[in-house]
Design a protein around this nucleic acid. Structure first.
Lengths: 340, 340
DNA sequence: TTGTATGCGTTATCAA
DNA sequence: TTGATAACGCATACAA
């Protein structure tokens, strides 16, 4: 941002050649240099507040020491904790994080992905995957190092770190059944995402396991993981005459939409209808009522994904793992036994 | 991240010299090149999916086309909207945003700032300023291009974009007075920040303007803009025997802490005590009770700051402006007339 | 232990 | 209109 001192200037000040200065300042090679010289160079570097030019270094080493992160939208409170986990791990290894928001726009995503490649990121962490994505599968085949977080791509060996979607929903449904509910609805998320699909399937399976026959009208799908789309799907269900006593939302944003519709219809939660969300986003514990939801360890998901990427950067031939982090059911005040 | 095609390869494929390829692909110089050649080069570039190497370009042009953003903590919902504003504007001009979290740790901040400089960012947007900061004032004097958001540095000509802290608090206090309150407390934010200080002063001034004498016991200060520190300060006030009928919190996080203490003491808000926050963070409209607060246009603050930085990058001699964006009072359900 | 030469991919400058 | 050459700042193979 301002004419920074170069290695040459440091070398001059220390009275040595650039090469020596480079060696002295580089931990990997500093053992080759005379301790006295070493001190002189370090002193010079300190005095000039020398910072190696990352672009020059990267050009030479063919590494940028940076990692791109593709998110749908940073303002969705789900993602900041993931990003923090990623950043903390990456920063500890000297990597810088480049964040990009796709807004669920595939074209924008392509542009941003290209930008990241232009910046020569050493790897990418992707939170925007669709089940049938080919932008990423192609890139993966071309050798682009990547890790998926939160969502996965179908039938691919791209490594991923996700929460346990299936188990999370299973716990939620079982909890409702134990409370005595049988008319349990699911407001599913978009089926082109692994999260939307897996959770929907887990819902069906959990009902089946309990011997409850699925009423197809109780299964509706939101077009996006948002409050408005969640509300829209929920509203449609009620308008079709369906009367569940409990709703399992595919995520907390959709659950927010459910609550909106409950309010519209003057239904009190949990007295008239129970609700369970998914993710345990920040602040859902302060809703009215405090939301029962499936807690997913987002910070850890981010941290684990970063570690995995780092591993793969160090050792490209590592087999692709898929890590699933355990989910836990957090009971608050949005669930209760059905009214008699 | 994987061996990308270079300009040389594009040139070879198009049967021209690298220089020509460079010119053809660069909008600024493409007018100098023969239309037919141009097409050949572009075709080659497209076929190879050529992406210019940003590091090589940056090394040559001494511009990285990137901007650093220094935040206290991304998981504070205040910041994602600011970041989105910044990113949207910056991306439209081809800049990439580098986000760094300082966690309010001065040493960490210094390290991150150095990292950003090492990455040769063309400018920095800073949301972590302290009133007496000298890391930034020094850097500013050295010619580092920067813009402060949300907070400013005292007595400096560093450009800034902030919400109208003074007016926001004035509106909040006046509103409470109009409702009939006279024992109005303020849980101030850290006084080493411009926001904490300005809001505290605005509170005093507003009382003064209304002819209400300040009870010093009703003015307490939180050590940080967090829920726990807000609760701590609020608790101390009650334990000192003070009984306000209304509280103006320095921000929404602190307001959350106030609500916690109200609950501890079985005080109902707004029946027993009124509360006003500051910022209108996401989700405060869904608290119990929905929080009355001062709305600050965070997205616009970010966008405006990015525009300002862009202006200054283009024209370094621009005078340093300080923009204040208007705040508005958002009345929800946390304020009411005092109990009789 | 230190220095020399070279090149990473791009663009600026100059020459043709 | 195009090509040749050098240079950005750094790291590395090689030589001394």
């Amino acid at each position: 941002m301002t004419n920074s001192p170069t290695l040459k200037e440091v070398a001059q000040r220390a009275g040595v050649h650039v090469t020596t200065a480079s060696r002295a300042l580089n931990p990997a090679t500093s053992s080759l240099v005379n301790p006295a010289t070493m001190r002189r160079v370090q002193a010079a570097a300190r005095e000039l507040r020398y910072q190696p030019n990352a672009m020059a270094r990267g050009l030479k080493t063919a590494k940028s020491m940076s990692v791109g992160v593709l998110l749908p939208d940073l303002t969705n409170p789900l993602f900041p904790p993931i990003v923090r986990g990623i950043e903390d791990v990456l920063a500890a290894s000297g990597y810088t994080t480049l964040i990009a928001n796709t807004d669920n726009d595939l074209e924008r995503q392509r542009t941003l992905f290209d930008t990241l490649r232009a910046r020569q990121v050493d790897g990418v962490i992707i939170a925007t995957a669709r089940r049938d994505d080919n932008l990423f599968t192609e890139a993966h085949q071309q050798g682009v190092r990547m890790v998926m977080v939160n969502r996965r791509v179908d039938q691919s060996d791209i490594p991923s770190v996700t929460g346990d979607d299936h188990d999370g929903i299973a716990m939620a449904v079982r909890h409702l059944i134990e409370l005595g509910h049988t008319r349990i609805a699911h407001v599913a998320g978009p089926q082109h995402t692994s999260t939307g699909r897996t959770r929907q399937r887990a819902y069906r399976q959990a009902l089946d396991d309990a011997g409850i026959e699925l009423d197809p009208g109780l299964l509706v799908t939101a077009n996006e993981f948002t409050e408005v789309e969640g509300a829209k799907a929920t509203r449609a269900m009620f308008e079709a005459g369906k009367r569940p006593t409990a709703v399992v939302a595919a995520n907390d944003m959709i659950a927010l939409g459910c609550l909106d519709v409950f309010n519209e219809r003057r239904m009190r939660c949990p007295d008239d209808i129970s609700l369970v969300g998914f993710n345990d986003m920040p602040f859902v514990d302060r809703l009215t009522p405090p939301l029962s939801t499936v807690h997913v360890p987002h910070y850890q998901i981010g941290a684990e994904a970063a570690r995995m990427l780092l591993d793969r950067l160090a050792n490209p031939d590592l087999p692709a793992k898929s890590i699933t982090l355990p989910a836990t059911l957090v009971l608050r005040e949005s669930t209760a036994a059905p009214a008699v």
